[in-house]
């Protein structure tokens, strides 16, 4: 279940251009803050169409408030077609203009548009690339760093343990949010958005490993005293054998638990920082950056669809949590049913 959500999100993000009918970089001021179009099967005359369609939108002025509103133009039916040709993009170095769906003329924005009239769906999918990459990279570094530090600290004890634990305590005793903000703020403004992106990943993983290291250390400490570890030493097994063949595999379920907590945490962390304007910098897009557009309460009130990235964040976070539960059960040798 969790796995399905994650896989769908990953595919959508990786092939973001393929799934977005419009170029998400294209500015069109005339489409600013256009609401989502509804997918319909039945038209205004009550006639049923086999092919789903949307109505085109046209700009109007509200007669009471004189503000700009969009109304559905029921005279223009835009049938949704699959695998249509549209704008050209590059994916893995391949040029293509094939899209999963689209309309032949006019435009389709299933999640509406942002202030500059850019297609929100496309931008969310694109933002997912950055957000998920940061989360995965951060998690990978967390696992590697956390397991190594935790194992070394727990297994050898003594002065090494002392040093690692004090480092962790220092790192964890900083108030979290100001620390992220300080680190992010120290990234030079002149850097390109790619450099900022990489430095963000490093910062996130640097701040995230202590939790896992603690967890692994605790587990190792208890496993170390178990007889089966004594048994390996008794038969003459080396330290590396004890650690890699016996201790680490037995920590696996713990690592997975921490991992599945930390990936969503990283996604949220990134969103928070970018939302505050400290993380990823435009023109790079992430879910947090997109939410920046929803910082003002009037904007949310008038154009609620700009909150759509939130839904994706929630979906991703829940997905990872479900996935974690499943993986942990699979990694636990005791939960396997007797046959």
């Amino acid at each position: 279940m969790g796995g399905v959500i994650i896989v769908v999100l990953l595919i959508l993000s990786i092939f973001a251009p393929f799934f977005s009918p419009h170029d998400y970089l294209e500015y069109s001021p005339d489409k600013s803050y256009r609401p989502p179009q509804k997918i319909r099967f039945v038209d205004a005359q009550g006639k049923f169409h086999w092919r789903p369609f949307v109505y085109d939108m046209k700009l109007d002025i509200d007669p009471m408030t004189y503000s700009r509103i969009y109304v559905e133009d029921t005279s223009k039916i835009l049938s949704i077609r699959f695998f249509v040709r549209g704008w050209e993009y590059k994916i893995f170095g391949l040029r293509s203009n094939l899209h999963f769906f689209g309309v032949e003329e006019g435009s389709i924005h299933l999640l509406g548009t942002d202030r500059y009239g850019r297609d929100l769906l496309g931008r969310i999918l694109l933002g997912g690339r950055i957000s998920l990459t940061i989360a995965f990279f951060g998690a990978a570094v967390t696992v590697i760093l956390g397991s190594i530090m935790g194992t070394v600290s727990g297994y050898y004890g003594g002065i090494v343990d002392m040093l690692v634990q004090r480092t962790i305590e220092v790192l964890q005793s900083f108030p979290q949010l100001p620390l992220w903000m300080a680190l992010s703020a120290s990234v030079p403004r002149t850097w390109t958005s790619l450099q900022v992106f990489i430095s963000m990943m490093v910062i996130f993983s640097f701040l995230n490993w202590p939790t896992l290291a603690r967890e692994v250390r605790g587990k190792i400490l208890s496993l170390r005293e178990q007889d089966f570890i004594a048994a390996i030493k008794e038969m003459g097994g080396s330290d590396s054998r004890v650690i890699f063949r016996h201790l680490l595999p037995n920590c696996l379920s713990h690592v997975i638990v921490v991992l599945t907590i930390s990936i969503p945490e990283l996604i949220l962390m990134e969103s928070v920082l970018s939302f505050l304007g400290l993380g990823i910098q435009p023109p790079m897009v992430s879910w947090g950056v997109l939410l920046q557009g929803a910082q003002r309460i009037e904007v949310i009130g008038l154009y609620p669809w700009v909150m759509a990235p939130c839904a994706f964040i929630v979906l991703a976070v829940l997905g990872f949590n479900f996935l974690g539960d499943g993986l942990r059960d699979a990694a636990d040798p005791y939960s396997v049913k007797k046959s």
């Binding site: 178990q226 007889d227 089966f228 004594a230 048994a231 038969m235 003459g236 016996h246 037995n250 005791y334």
Partner: peptide
Amino acid sequence: LKNLRREIRMIFQDPYASLDPR
């Protein structure tokens, strides 16, 4: 010592804790 550990071996008390469950 490792060499000698072939000749002296041990049987442990707790048959649940002394075998690696994985």
